[in-house]
Design a protein around this nucleic acid. Sequence first.
DNA 1: AATGAATGAGTGTTCATTCAT
DNA 2: TATGAATGAACACTCATTCAT
Lengths: 202, 202, 202, 202
Amino acid sequence: MPKSPERCQEIREETRKKILRDAMLYFAKNGFSGTKISDLANYIGIGQGTLYLYFKSKEDLFRELFAVCNNDREIKELKTLSLLPLSAKSKIHRLSKTVLKKLEKDEAYAAKVTLTTQVLFEKNDYASESTTYQSEIYLYTAKIIEQGQREKSVVDGSSMKLADFYWSVVYLYALKKLFTTKYETITADDLERILLKDEHKK
Amino acid sequence: MPKSPERCQEIREETRKKILRDAMLYFAKNGFSGTKISDLANYIGIGQGTLYLYFKSKEDLFRELFAVCNNDREIKELKTLSLLPLSAKSKIHRLSKTVLKKLEKDEAYAAKVTLTTQVLFEKNDYASESTTYQSEIYLYTAKIIEQGQREKSVVDGSSMKLADFYWSVVYLYALKKLFTTKYETITADDLERILLKDEHKK
Amino acid sequence: MPKSPERCQEIREETRKKILRDAMLYFAKNGFSGTKISDLANYIGIGQGTLYLYFKSKEDLFRELFAVCNNDREIKELKTLSLLPLSAKSKIHRLSKTVLKKLEKDEAYAAKVTLTTQVLFEKNDYASESTTYQSEIYLYTAKIIEQGQREKSVVDGSSMKLADFYWSVVYLYALKKLFTTKYETITADDLERILLKDEHKK
Amino acid sequence: MPKSPERCQEIREETRKKILRDAMLYFAKNGFSGTKISDLANYIGIGQGTLYLYFKSKEDLFRELFAVCNNDREIKELKTLSLLPLSAKSKIHRLSKTVLKKLEKDEAYAAKVTLTTQVLFEKNDYASESTTYQSEIYLYTAKIIEQGQREKSVVDGSSMKLADFYWSVVYLYALKKLFTTKYETITADDLERILLKDEHKK
DNA sequence: AATGAATGAGTGTTCATTCAT
DNA sequence: TATGAATGAACACTCATTCAT
C-alpha cells in the first residue's frame, strides 16, 4: 500500500538532506574520528540503522558531505564578481562584506569552511579534492588581486600567496564562530587590510 | 646489584622527555582521537606498555603535553619586548620577524601551536587553560598595539581584537607548516599589515 | 517501523536475566579474576559487546550479581520458620532437610552460596554487604538455637557462633557441589549434629 | 671474589625459603589470578626479576608452593596417632585439640589449608595431587573413625564421608582465620561433635 | 645475584556496521 | 522504511616475563 512513488522518493530526498545538513554541523564540531555514529544519529533524531539506509558507511557520509561543501554556487558568484567592470578595491570591499556577513549569519557556512580545514587535520586523503575546489576560488581571487596590483591599490607579492592569505583568515574566523563562545569578529576593514596597500585616503 | 639509582632516575627522565617530544608531533598531526596508542608507540620507537610506565592513560599523556606547551618562556620574552624603549612599529616588526623565523625552523613550535588549536576542535574541556595562557600573550601584544595607536602607527579598533587577529594568523601558518607540503609562507610585511596603518613611507 | 516498544523492553529484560543467571554459574566456577569476558560471553552464547549493553563493566556485572544473590526470599522463609509454634529440634530438622535438598537440586543455589564465599577470597570490598545479608540469616538461626538451648535439645555456647558454624558447613557443601565431581553429601542428621545435644533417643 | 661456595648456596636456599613462605600467604589471601607478580615481589621485598632467578614462572612458583604444602610431617603424625593404643574417642579428642591450636597460632598453617582449597576454585588441574595428599590424611582419619564405630562412640555412616566432613570443617575455619577479622572459633567439643555419637557422659 | 625498565601477548571496552522485527 | 539490539574487529590498557646494567 505504498504512497505515490514520487512522494515516496521525495520523502527519501528530504531525509537525506536533513542528515547531510545536521551531520555537517556535528562533524564540524567534533571531527571525523571524534564523531560516533550513535551520537550523530541521536543528534539528528533518527535511528542508527537509518543512517545506513542513506549512506554506505561513516566514511561515505563524510565524503558526500565534503563533496556538497565544495559543490557550490560560490565559485560562480566569485567569478561573476571578478568580471564586473569595477575597481579591484571595490571588488575586494564587496567580497569582504559579503563573506563576513555570511559568516555572521549562517552557521552552516562556518561548518562548511571548518570541514574543509578539518580535512587537513584528519583526512589528508581528501586534500586533493579540497585543493581542486580551492584552486578555483583562489584563481578568481588572484585575478582580482592582480587587477588591484595594476591599479596600485593592492600590495605587491605573489597573487596566489595573497589569495591564500585572505581566505585563510576567512577560514580562521569560521572556526572561531563555531568553537568560541565569545569572540570579537573582525570588520571588513580588517579583512581588506590583508590585501590593500593603504587606507590613508579613507 | 641494582643500577645506580641516580642513573636510573636520569634514564627515566630522558625517556619521558622523548615521549613528550615525539608525542607532541604525532598528536599535532593526527589529533587526539585520530591517534592510536599502538601507532604512537611505534612512531616513538618504544613498546606500548612503556608508554603506561610514564603516563597513566592516553588522556593523561595529552593533558601533560598540553601543559608543557603552555608553560613557556615565550610569555616572558614578549613581556620584555613590550617594555623596551622602542617605537611600537619596531616592536611589531621585531616580533613578526622572530615569530615567522621560529615557524620556519622549528617544527615543534608549529606542533605546539597546533595542539593549542586542536583543543578547540576536540577537547573543549581544556579550553580554559588554553585561554589563560593565551590571555597573557594577548595582554602584552595588546599593550604594544595600544602604544602604536597612540603613536598613530597602528590602526584603530579594540586592541584585544587586533591582538587576537594577529596571533590567529600566526596559528594559521603553524597549521599550514605542519600539514601542507608546499605552501608559500607570508612575509613579516604581510603579518605586520594586519596591525600597521599604512606603509606609504616605506 | 520500530519493534513494538513493550516487546522490546521485554526482550531486554529477558536477556538481562539470562546474563545474570549464566554469569552467576560462570563466576562461581571461575572466580572474578579467573573469568575472561570473552569466555563468559561465549559461555552465555552472546557477543562480547552485548554484555556491555546491559552492564557497564565486568566489575558492575559482578556487583549486580552479588546483589541479586543477597536479595532474597530466603530470609523471609527462615524468619517464618523461626516464629512457628514448633520445638527447636523440629525447626532445625526441617531447616536442615530443606537446605540439603536445595543444595542437591539447584545448582544456582550452590552458585549463589559460592559467590558469597568468593567475595571473601577476592573482593573483600563487598564483604560488608555480604555480612549484612548473613547477619539476618544468622539472627533468625540464632533465635532458633536459643529456643533449643532453653529446651535443652541444643548444645551450649554462643548462639551466634553456632549459627555461623551451621551455615559455614552449608556453604562448604555448596562449594563441593559445584567443584567436586564425585562427593558424598552429608545427611540431615550429620548437619543437625552440629547443633543438637544428643541423639540417644533416636 | 665469591664468598665460600657453600655459604653462597646457603644464602640462595634462604632466599628461596623466604619467597616460598611469603608467597604462600600472599597467594592464599589473593588467589592465583588475583596475584600480580609486581605486587607479590613488592610484598616479599625483592625485585620482580629476582623471583625469576628462583622460579621459572608464576605457575611454577605456585606449583612448588602447593607441593610444599602437601609434603608434610602431618601425615606421619596422624598415622602415628592412629596406631596408638588409645580409644578412638581420645584419639579424636587429641587430634581436634592439636588442629585447633595450630589454626589459632600458625597463620602459615591456615594459608596452607587455604591454598589447598583454592585449587578447587581456580586450578582444578592440581586437584589430583591434592586428592592424593588428602586421601592419606583421610585414610588414617577414616581408620580412627572405624575404630570408634566399633567402640560405639562414633556415629554410623561411611567413614570416608565422615572424615571428609571433619576435615572440611577444619578447612573452613582456616579460611575464616585468614579472611575474617573478627570471628569466634569453634571449640574442640564443637569439632568432635561432628563425629561423636553423644556427649551425655560428660 | 639483583634490579626494575621494557616488552608484547592478552584482556577489558568501544563503536561502526548488520539484521531481525 | 525505520529501528535499536546484537556483533566482533579494533582499540586502550595490564601484567607475566625478559634483559641490560
